[in-house]
Design a protein around this nucleic acid. Structure first.
Length: 359
DNA sequence: AATGCGGGGTC
DNA sequence: GACCCAGCATT
């Protein structure tokens, strides 16, 4: 491959065809950092509205550092992978306290911040500071796979050396930020996972897979196992005009989000019985069954759930939390003030104000 | 090196 | 339905 020719074709194409994305209007490392955090495993069109709103509310490191985790989670609500924003928030506080509010310009110092891995460190420093470091993300791996007919699976975590070597061969150190963005943009717009548009590709004549007519055979992927499905019950516990919500522990799945108490249905158990049992185990409260409300389906990365929602009435007992770390009795109108998982959003906005209205 | 971690778009 | 996505932390 003629490297300089490849680089020029790629970056010229980028200049002429790049999308007008919000994070391309700035060189502020904070704004680029936020965008890269949101864009992890998440598509551009999903991110845009979250990005705009997040930066309106947290326009700089100091405002983010000064805010509560809960308020930050609330802005991330619905975006998923909540550890990203918990880490971003922790990192903002570290930058505020240890670096006088200035994002460290040293690669190693920045890389050490929570949530900043190889990709984000490379992306932010190359785009904001022109550090000469190539990025490797899902798009870049797919492009490299086709350019060089790499047989290394792109979804095999960790094994990056082949891609690292390949990208270093074609990396344009004279304009690192533009080169990196160009590679990712090519992957997003032309060298797509399905039906790549080789006819419009600026570097198709450098691409082994295209030359060999094998574009559809790259990238190679490993097969993913099927995900299990769990049957879940959830109880919305009414007490007058209030309902009980509980706070998940701050790490792990949906960490730091509020939810309605519930859990898995045991084998041979009715969903009503499971609901009463789970409510008691998780909250210590005795409740009576009101009515079935709705069934919700939801998919996570490693499993799926079928969730039956019941409306219940508080009877007796004092709160004794099991896995949750906090609780609140709130009115239905206040639900929007707290961050909830997507599965809860599929029913919570349809809930009645009081239980007696619907019995 | 392997695993856990969301949600939405697309085909 | 299955696949894919501007990855990181933990073990």
């Amino acid at each position: 491959m003629k490297i300089p020719e490849f680089q020029k074709s790629l970056t010229d194409w980028f200049d002429a065809n790049k999308r007008d994305l919000p994070w391309r209007k700035t060189r502020d490392p904070y704004r680029i950092w936020v965008s890269e955090s949101m864009l992890q495993q998440t598509q551009v069109n999903t991110v845009i509205p979250f990005y705009e709103r997040f930066l309106e509310i947290f326009p700089d490191i100091s405002s983010l550092a000064a805010s509560s985790v809960e308020s930050v989670l609330k802005q991330w609500e619905g975006l998923g992978y909540y550890g990203r924003v918990r880490n971003l928030h922790r990192a903002a506080r570290i930058v505020f306290e240890q670096y006088q509010g200035k994002i460290p310009r040293e690669y190693e110092a920045f890389r050490k911040l929570p949530g900043v891995g190889e990709y984000i460190a490379a992306a932010v420093t190359s785009i904001a500071y022109q550090f000469t470091v190539p990025v490797i993300d899902g798009n870049v791996k797919r492009v490299l796979s086709r350019l060089f007919e790499l047989t290394q699976p792109v979804n095999d975590a960790g094994k990056k050396k082949i891609f690292q070597d390949a990208v270093e061969e074609i990396f344009d150190a004279s304009q690192p930020g533009k080169f990196n963005e160009s590679m990712m943009e090519l992957g997003a717009l032309i060298c797509r996972p399905n039906q790549p548009d080789c006819g419009q590709c600026p570097v198709s004549k450098h691409c082994l897979a295209c030359i060999d007519g094998k574009v559809n055979r790259f990238p190679k992927k490993t097969q993913k196992p099927a995900v299990p499905e769990y049957h879940i019950v959830v109880g919305v516990i009414y007490r007058e005009d209030k309902v009980l919500i509980t706070l998940r522990k701050s790490d792990g799945l949906l960490g730091g989000l509020w939810e309605f108490p519930g859990g898995k249905v045991n084998k041979g158990e009715t969903t009503e019985a499971a609901c009463l049992r789970e409510v008691f185990e998780e909250t210590g409260l005795t409740v009576e069954m009101g009515s079935f409300f709705k069934t919700v389906k939801h998919a996570y990365t490693h499993f799926k759930i079928l969730m039956d929602v019941f409306l219940c009435r508080f009877v007796s007992g004092d709160i004794r939390l099991n896995s949750a770390v906090d609780f609140k009795w709130i009115r239905i109108a206040e639900l929007g003030d707290f961050p909830f998982p997507g599965s809860n959003h599929k029913f919570m906005h349809e809930l009645p104000m009081r239980l007696d209205n619907c019995l």
